[in-house]
Design a protein around this nucleic acid. Structure first.
Length: 359
DNA sequence: AAAATTTGACCTAG
DNA sequence: CTAGGTCAAATTTT
């Protein structure tokens, strides 16, 4: 297990750095695109900073294995000697045939009334096999599943495991795409008030084996697709965050390992074949940004992917973003008592972030 | 034994 | 009434 966790750290570290690079790349693009809102840029900058912050944190962690608590704030980014050579994919990196102008472009167009609850849709596609990489550093408890009209696959409903213990009312829905079973549309609602931060290392072992579980038990239902992908590299991972509202990234309690393992993996050193640590994700730290022009559309892809994207040119193809809102009005009504905690939550968005720190 | 998932019943907005 | 969301008892997993 030791080796495993160590490599995990390393992967995370490299992942963060690479992510930082990618984000910087995007920022550069967005800088040249006049249509990009400053909010989007700010968003990118924040994410870059967060990435590097995390990277530093990881570095420190691996350096001094006996550090009980680390606060990212204290780590001053004074040595940014990490150069672009870090990744073997560095060469592909300069190709800027990356058409994200598309998404950064239609921002702040038709703006709808935002729900009080944060919900945003993320499309996660793990084309290279890993079935359900919905690992976002939080523990979810499934509480329902529904067949959706016109949808091929049922929709699953999850709530935070700590709903009762910590009054955390975050929920998410996972819906597999009809056409692309490899794509999962995840809708997050509410925000985490639980202190389930992953300031250090969250789930080292097996992040996602749900699919595998049922797999081994009963191989019904799941439409057989190429599932012989133990060795396949997650090169095609892509995270699509649409409909970002007001969120802001500080040192968020999340540990999103980057998307871009393809880079490190594509070398000759495949690590554990069973590693399925696709903890990619974006954080939803959220809140105090001006609720004004919010729809930052954000796209992330590993460098090696960029070409593909450019070629395929598929981006925000469908605007299924209408799912926003409508959560609030009804959600609390059935349970009058809950009105209180909910309100508190809304009034104290900072609470959660401070938690790991004043401790 | 405890925790998580499954799944049909139940609830509510439209 | 219908579709989507949630509850909760039964089951399964750990």
């Amino acid at each position: 297990m030791d080796t495993a966790s160590k490599s995990w750290e390393q992967k995370s570290l490299v992942g963060e750095i690479i992510q930082g690079m990618e984000l910087a790349q995007q920022l550069r693009l967005s800088l040249s695109a006049t249509s990009t809102s400053s909010e989007t840029r700010e968003f990118l900058v924040q994410r870059i900073l967060t990435s590097y912050e995390k990277a530093l944190l990881l570095l420190q962690l691996s350096g001094t294995p006996q550090t009980p608590h680390v606060d990212a704030k204290s780590i001053v980014p004074q040595e940014s000697r990490m150069s672009a050579n870090t990744s073997p994919c560095g060469d592909d990196y300069n190709h800027r045939s990356f058409n994200d102008h598309q998404d950064l472009h239609e921002i702040s167009k038709k703006r709808k009334i935002m729900a009080k609850w944060t919900d945003h849709v993320i499309r996660v596609s793990s084309e290279n096999g890993i079935e359900g990489p919905h690992e976002d550093g939080h523990s979810w408890r499934k509480y329902g599943q529904k067949d959706i009209l016109g949808a091929k696959y049922p929709r699953s409903y999850y709530r935070c495991t700590f709903r009762n213990t910590q009054n955390c009312w975050a929920t998410k829905q996972v819906q597999r795409s009809d056409e692309d079973p490899t794509i999962f549309e995840i809708t997050y609602k509410g925000k985490h008030t639980c202190s389930h931060g992953s300031t250090s290392v969250p789930p080292p072992p097996s992040p996602e084996q749900k699919e595998q579980k049922r797999h081994k038990r009963e191989n019904i239902s799941e439409p057989q697709q190429s599932q012989v992908n133990q060795m396949s590299f997650p090169t095609n991972l892509r995270v699509d965050t649409e409909n970002l509202e007001d969120r802001e990234m500080m040192a968020s309690p999340f540990a999103f390992t980057s998307t871009s393992f393809g880079c490190m993996m594509s070398g000759d050193d495949f690590l554990s074949p069973m590693f399925d640590n696709e903890n990619f994700f974006s954080d939803f730290s959220q809140h105090l940004l001006s609720p004004a022009a919010g729809e930052s559309n954000y796209h992330l892809a590993p460098p090696s992917q960029m070409r593909n994207i450019a070629v395929n040119g598929q981006l925000s193809e469908s605007d299924h973003t209408e799912i926003i809102s409508a959560t609030n009005s009804s959600t609390n009504s059935p349970i009058p008592d809950m009105d209180f905690p909910l309100d508190l939550v809304e009034f104290d968005p900072n609470f959660q972030f401070d938690a790991p720190e004043f401790f």
